[in-house]
Simulated scan of single mutants.
Amino acid sequence: MIIKLKRVYADYDNADGYRVLVDRLWPRGMKKESLKFDLWEKDITPSTELRKWFHSDQAQNWEEFATRYRIELQSSGVLSRFVDTLKGQSVVTLLYASKNESQNHALVLKSELERELHKQGL
């Protein structure tokens, strides 16, 4: 399985495969009928408390945020359930709204998802 990342505001591409919105909140300025997605997976996102803390100072909080989010993913069981949902897909694109393409939760999620897929032999 290939996992890709893409901002929700980027153009749709057939090569995106199975498109999963991985934001807890609906993206600003995006009409629901204009976003092509297969699944909106709110449960895989950082907790509201963690998200708000991270956004209070993204540059300063990035490393700690990534660590805390990994812990949330690993301790909740949501990651393995998410992998079960994705089984059978050859390409999965995680859609996110963050303007910061180098420090956002989708990067951490992709990394943890790839680790879980490897662990399960997928």
Results as ranks from 00 to 15, higher is better:
M1S: 15
I2A: 10
I3C: 10
L5K: 14
L5A: 10
K6R: 08
K6T: 01
K6C: 05
R7Y: 10
V8C: 14
D11E: 13
Y12V: 10
Y12I: 06
Y12K: 12
D13Q: 14
N14D: 11
D16M: 04
G17D: 10
G17H: 08
G17Y: 10
Y18R: 08
V20N: 07
V20C: 09
D23I: 00
R24L: 00
L25I: 12
L25W: 05
P27I: 09
G29Q: 02
G29I: 05
G29Y: 04
M30A: 15
M30D: 14
M30P: 06
E33W: 10
S34Q: 14
S34Y: 05
S34A: 09
L35P: 01
K36V: 05
K36M: 11
K36R: 15
F37M: 11
D38H: 10
W40Q: 04
K42R: 12
T45V: 11
S47Y: 00
S47C: 07
T48K: 08
T48E: 14
R51H: 01
W53I: 01
F54H: 01
H55M: 06
H55R: 08
S56R: 11
D57R: 11
D57A: 15
D57P: 05
Q58H: 03
Q58F: 03
Q58D: 03
Q60H: 14
Q60L: 15
A66R: 14
T67I: 12
T67Q: 15
R68W: 09
Y69C: 03
R70H: 00
I71R: 12
Q74E: 11
S76P: 11
V78S: 14
L79G: 06
L79A: 08
S80N: 14
S80H: 07
R81K: 15
F82R: 03
V83C: 12
D84Q: 13
T85G: 05
L86I: 04
K87Y: 05
K87T: 04
G88Q: 04
G88Y: 02
Q89F: 08
S90A: 09
V91G: 06
T93Q: 04
T93L: 08
L94M: 12
L95V: 00
A97P: 04
A97N: 10
S98Y: 02
S98P: 02
N100I: 05
N100L: 12
N100P: 03
N104T: 03
V108C: 13
E114S: 12
L117G: 11
H118G: 13
K119P: 08
Q120M: 14
Q120F: 02
